[in-house]
Design a protein around this nucleic acid. Sequence first.
DNA 1: ACCCAGGTGGCCC
DNA 2: GGGCCACATGGG
Length: 220
Amino acid sequence: MSLRMFLKKVIDCCGVVEWWPSTDPFEISIQAILTQNTSWKNVLKATENLRSGGLMSPKSLFESDIGEIEKAIRPSGFYRVKAKRIKSFVSFLFDKLEGRIENLKNYPLKAARNMLLSVEGIGKETADTILLFALDFPIMVVDAYTRRVLSRAGFDIPRDYDSLRELIEKNSPRRDSRTFKLLHSGFDELAKRYCKKTSPKCSLCPLSSLCKGSVRREHS
DNA sequence: ACCCAGGTGGCCC
DNA sequence: GGGCCACATGGG
């Protein structure tokens, strides 16, 4: 099956329109940092701690002690590095965007992306997550699930993040934010339900070509 | 007692 | 450009 056809199936089978639980662009951005190599349940605990502590705002995070942030986000793991990253992010907001992540929408996609990538602790996936899910820019978000599903389906995918992102964007049925959200959520839901790391067999998988035959080597 | 989870940066070659 | 490592909590 062609990649183009496969992507259509991912969207039709498993794509979710409102996949990211939060709607506030700032909160989505913070969660994008918190979820780095971390299960979503732990992110929700940290999110709730920040909310209840009155810390889920650019101003309060900018003004609060790093230790206070560490304490609140502890359940999400890597809490020391992530507290620093959150500090860097809010400093960036006040330095470049008058404290509002929404102001990044005043820039072209590429410029906005480069600005995010200049922040300590924001790499390509986190930057693209903020661009797509918080700000509605049309860009694909590639993650470990995306790679696993495509590898298991037998596609020979590039290691390089941007090469894979562009390959998916090129073969996407559309290049708008809605389609990329459906694609990303589709990959993630598919991986969670049918394509676990430790179980090569996924008999319930709705995509016929997935897990057909032997499992190939995965490029994580 | 393992392995895994919605990555990133630093260091090395 | 890759390969390896630390970062750390909570669940299976």
